[in-house]
Nucleic acid binder design. Structure first.
Length: 938
RNA sequence: GGGGCGGUGGCGGAACGGCAGACGCUGCGGACUUAAAAUCCGCUGGACCUAGGUCCAUGAGGGUUCGAGUCCCUCCCGCCCUACCA
């Protein structure tokens, strides 16, 4: 069968041939063509690490395939690429290897361009942008100035996260994990008090949240951004310290205000020093010191035990005039809300733990929605334990008898509902022995004494009842509050505290307010009385962009002794990085020690002044790179050509990893909103659709890392099997959004596919046979059109794995069909052409070569995507499944146009079906057209 | 604690509520070859078996349905994000 002229597929030769040809003919040159709908497909730009690893391929190759698909579908597709070129590794290389960051970076880019070319992707190289070039960062600085003008860039002293290894500050979202390590190098961060530049992203909190609704992004990313923004609705309340200072707190539970029995400030709260009473000053200072160290040292060892100290001052609870002590504790964060809380130990788990530990009063102010109460009947507290137990049983009350310490058997009573509780209290009042008491806790808070029942409903009641109990039972003297006493009994522990909404109790005039109205009613009342009101709080913090490093865009600011902070005038941009800086790991920017850079004339008064030496977080550069792409290094008044921007923007489809959910993807949305406010764009969101690919793992199903030795180098496979086989395999591994693991044997599958398709199209045909029967032609057409439908749908919905499965099936089908007489018919030619066209986005080189070999017009990548015809794709015969009581009993091959009557009859006529319904009564039959007949028998 | 994503053969994975395991890898058997590689052809979840079938199988257990991998409830396990968030 094999002939002398047939040559096996030579990937290297053919891939190189077409890459060269594509470049020469400008196949991927960007054109503005108003006659076609535009499609801006973007994949997250790579960092210039120097080497394109398999993860890059995994992110880029499927994106490229989909961009190509859209091009064939008739869109004018823009698929640009560039480099995120500023950042620490370049500078670290400079320190370690004495190579200038610029040189290191540009060398890496050179190498990465080669690797990117080997992928055979349709990159718009004519729009490449590199963020570290002055022509680029001029505009990054321009943005900074615009932000500054609008009050969106500001400088402040703040305790900031600092990576001691990278020697720079980090934004909050660049600090990862429970141990708070640096996102880049993994070193644990420390806190440093530094004056830093921030971008006021919090001005857009609400809009960043609302905007999520209008974009087609994965739920996962939206959820992460929602959580990160962390909107919570509640109330602001002002407590007045006895010294006269107002302490503002934020609470989501204003309905629990009457239960606020103390306050807690963050140790760094500005009022702490002022309010601390002299006798407490020493211990407060000690605690503050320890708290500040704690964030530096290992926080894991803190074990989350609640600790704190009383500062010796009091405030007044504005709703009931109660005097409440003020504490500081490290479980209150200065970075959230106001850095101060009203503590409601009855209904907040942390406050509860704190109050129990320090003996602070705990008063329940919200009824239990489950109406469950408990009571422990102590041995000897009723006359006759057995008789009392009988009474409980008669009343239908749930209880169990068990020993209480060494005191003998007691009764552990579980009560449910008001009626039962009332009944129990009555019974207990009858039976209680003198010099004893009994308590009901949970849905009711009552202490039953010989002379009557005392409700536990206030701090005074707490004190009084506790005193009586201590008088009756001296062992109780070790407890400072009733709750502490109750908490000492394990039986009660689960019922002393709850955080549900419920009817307000012990709350003055508000007592009885139902849980669904309580929050609103109290908030309104606070506002009326001028002591608080509704408030929305966000978790989102402003974006810290100062970095104490050299290899970033300088912040265009000059400090003048006379004029203060002076922005660099626009015409002086860019503020260039000097290329002769000294790289030393000092913890300060090398620019600090570069006199030529540091010293400048004040743009306002002309006097000697100093430049800002911090550079910008690289995420600032990448927040607008997709705008730069439309007209890189634009030389106009704005960062990109407005006319070109109007044509291409916004991004239609963005793809990339999930790791940027709360960083890049948040920042770039923020930038776009500011750009809109600046009049640069007329839309609200930068990327209309987003798709996150998963992570490619090593052969062993573990993350690829040098230490594991499981890193896959795509170059090796490209050199041996060709880029097309690598591209196809990456798409074939599994659902793109779930990621998958590399397999050096698995890639053989797509490699064989390449070869099988090659010989299918080019290997010598079989000897001519007889004219094919009409149904063989129809079957071939059916397969062709079905495959087109499947591949088109899968390509559309990112199901690259099943798309390749469909292509492989089609190829396998054609390999078999080639042996028959359908070869050399028009249907055959259509099939082969369709196959090549459909394969083109996935394996662009193979497709282009085969297309040329069958006499197709250059280039296959500009041919229209094949269409399918429903009628041609329709089956002539179908397999009808027959179930009896849900079990498959027969598979019938019937014509597609079989009627329901015929289907039922055929089903009942099948011998195996007959065997299973014999002697039974047919109750009903369900018919699903084209699929099955389900017979139900008894 | 909160949020998200998963759990299907030896492996990666398919499966509008309707034939579980498409496609591929691996393995086994065969063809070609002096031999090997490559290529091609079979078989490849388990157990029965009268060879026509039957039963068991999609993390566990319930439920809805003529019918559940798919929908609902309870639980278990894994991964990711987030977290004293007031």
């Amino acid at each position: 069968m094999k002939t002398k002229t047939f040559r096996r597929y030579q990937a290297q030769e053919i891939e190189a041939k077409w890459q060269k040809r594509w470049e020469e003919t400008g196949l991927y040159k960007t054109v503005q063509d108003p006659s076609r709908p535009k499609y801006y497909a973007l994949t997250m730009l790579p960092y210039t690490s120097g080497d394109l690893h398999i993860g890059h391929w995994y992110a880029m190759a499927p994106s490229d395939a989909r961009a190509r698909f859209h091009r064939m579908k008739g869109y004018n597709v823009f698929f640009p690429v560039g480099f995120d070129a500023f950042g620490l590794p370049a500078e670290n290389a400079a320190i370690e290897r004495c190579i200038h960051p610029h040189k290191w970076t540009m060398g890496n880019i050179e190498h990465m361009r080669k690797q990117l070319r080997s992928m055979g992707a349709m990159w718009a190289w004519d729009r490449e942008a590199i963020t570290c070039l002055p022509e680029y960062y001029k505009w990054t600085q321009w943005f900074f100035l615009k932000f500054y003008e609008r009050g969106l860039a500001y400088k402040k002293w703040a305790p900031v996260d600092f990576c001691p290894r990278c020697n720079t500050t980090l934004a909050r979202e660049q600090v990862w994990g429970e141990d708070r390590h640096c996102e880049r190098c993994g070193t644990q961060v420390i806190k440093k008090d530094l004056e830093q530049w921030f971008l006021r992203i919090t001005n857009y909190s609400e809009e960043l949240l609302d905007g999520l609704e209008e974009i087609d992004w994965p739920e996962r990313v939206k959820a992460m951004q929602q959580n990160w923004i962390g909107r919570s609705e509640g109330a602001q309340v002002v407590f007045r310290a006895e010294a006269g200072d107002d302490i503002e707190v934020f609470t989501t539970r204003p309905d629990t205000l009457w239960g606020a029995t103390f306050m807690v400030l963050a140790p760094e709260h500005p009022l702490v020093d002022k309010l601390t009473a002299e006798p407490r000053r020493e211990s407060v200072q000690a605690y503050k010191f320890q708290a500040s160290r704690q964030s530096e040292i290992e926080r894991l060892s803190a074990e989350r035990d609640k600790t704190g100290v009383f500062i010796g001052a009091y405030a007044v609870n504005p709703v009931n005039g109660e005097r409440v002590p003020i504490w500081i504790a490290d479980y209150v964060m200065m970075t959230y809300g106001t850095g101060a809380i009203m503590a409601v130990p009855g209904h907040d788990e942390r406050d509860f733990a704190f109050a129990i530990r320090y003996g602070l009063p705990i008063i329940p102010v919200i009824a239990r929605p489950d109406a469950v109460a408990k009571s422990l009947v102590f041995p000897g507290s009723v006359q006759d334990m057995h008789a009392f137990a009988d009474q409980l049983r008669d009343a239908g009350i749930d209880f169990s008898a068990a020993p209480v310490g060494s005191l003998g058997d007691g009764l552990f009573v579980m009560l449910q509902g008001e009626e039962q509780i009332d009944h129990y209290v009555d019974m207990m009042r009858e039976e209680l022995q003198p010099n004893n008491w009994n308590e009901v806790v949970g849905a009711r808070w009552a202490f039953i004494f010989a002379d009557g029942v005392r409700a536990f409903d206030s701090v005074e009641a707490d004190r009084e009842i506790l005193a009586r109990c201590q008088a009756l039972y001296p062992a109780v003297r070790q407890y400072r509050t009733l709750m502490e006493m109750l908490h000492s009994l394990p039986f009660y522990r689960d019922i002393l505290f709850h955080a549900e909404y419920g009817t307000m109790i012990n709350s003055g005039a508000f007592s009885g307010t139902p849980g669904d109205r309580a929050k609103g009613a109290v908030t309104e009342w606070l506002a009326e009385r001028g002591i608080g009101g509704p408030q929305v709080n966000y978790r989102l913090r402003d974006w810290l962009i100062s970095r104490q490093r050299y290899w970033g865009s300088p912040i265009p600011i000059i400090y003048c002794e006379e004029c203060g902070i002076v922005p660099v005038p626009y015409q002086d941009l860019p503020v260039l990085l000097p290329d002769d800086a000294q790289f030393m790991p000092t913890g300060e920017s090398p620019l600090r020690y570069h006199q030529g850079f540091l010293n400048a004339a004040c743009p306002r008064c002309g006097q000697p002044a100093e430049r800002e030496t911090d550079t910008m977080d690289t995420f600032v550069c990448s927040s607008w790179y997709h705008y730069a792409y439309v007209s890189p290094y634009y030389d106009g008044d704005v960062p990109f050509d407005p006319e070109v921007g109007r044509y291409w923007l916004p991004v239609d489809q963005y793809t990339g990893g999930i790791e940027h959910a709360t960083m890049h993807l948040m920042y770039t949305r923020f930038f776009t909103k500011v750009m809109r406010d600046l009049g640069l764009v007329d839309f609200d969101e930068p990327m209309l659709r987003l798709f996150n690919q998963g992570i490619i793992l090593g052969e062993d199903n573990e993350k690829m890392s040098k230490s594991r030795g499981n890193v896959v180098n795509p170059d090796d496979y490209v050199a041996t099997l060709g880029a097309d086989a690598v591209r196809a395999f990456l798409m074939f591994i599994g659902p793109w959004h779930l990621g998958g693991s590399w397999s050096s044997t698995g890639i053989e599958g797509t490699h064989r596919f390449v070869n099988r398709m090659w010989s299918l199209v080019l290997e010598e045909p079989p000897p001519p046979g007889e004219a094919p029967p009409a149904d063989a032609i129809a079957a071939l057409r059916r397969m062709t059109h079905k495959t087109i439908a499947r591949v088109t749908a899968d390509m559309h919905s990112f199901k690259f794995n099943t798309m390749l499965a469909a292509l492989m099936e089609f190829n396998n089908y054609l390999v078999k069909a080639k042996e028959t007489s359908v070869y050399a018919t028009a249907a055959w030619d259509d099939a082969i052409r369709s196959l090549i066209l459909m394969v083109a986005p996935v394996m662009p080189h193979l497709a282009e070569e085969l297309w040329e070999q069958i006499g197709g017009q250059y280039s296959v990548h500009t041919r229209p995507w094949p269409q399918w015809d429903e009628e041609l794709a329709a089956d002539e015969v179908i397999t009808l499944v027959v179930q009896v009581n849900g079990h498959v009993r027969a598979r019938l091959t019937v014509p597609a146009e079989t009627t329901e009557e015929q289907a039922r009859a055929a089903a009942l006529d099948n011998p195996n079906v007959r065997r299973h319904i014999e002697g039974r009564q047919v109750l009903k039959m369900i018919y699903v057209p084209g699929r099955l007949v389900s017979v139900v028998v008894r």
